[in-house]
Amino acid sequence: MHELSIAVQIAEIITEEAAKAEALTVTKVILEIGSLSGIEADAIELAVPEAFRNTICENAAVEYQYIKARAVCESCCNEFDPIDHYKICPFCNSLYTSFLKGKELNIKSFDIVKP
């Protein structure tokens, strides 16, 4: 259940940044979560509202943008969609490949109301 500690981090970061922006309230939060980030969709969607309770984000709508993994082969330079963490190149069978997308664990943006 590391999703709960991740959710608490999200609430802390937004609370700090919202205070800097002199926000009255936060109305929307957009999160980017890659399929290889180690975060389960069900678990984070359960944890975030709990972590937001009694914070400036309490009434914010949360949009979860899930990002599919994408990898590139370092041997033949082709891009492909890896199946989970298995990133054998489907073109040349090389194991030396790297992920281009899928590790994201970001707060993309949030909407605030200001006085």
Binding site: I6, Q9, N106, K114
Partner: peptide, 18 residues
């Protein structure tokens, strides 16, 4: 109402504190 809405483009890694 004298309030305005604003989008804060933060693009911050959630694990950035760690």
């Amino acid at each position: 109402h004298l309030t305005t809405t604003q989008t804060v483009q933060i693009q911050r890694n959630i694990l950035s504190k760690n």
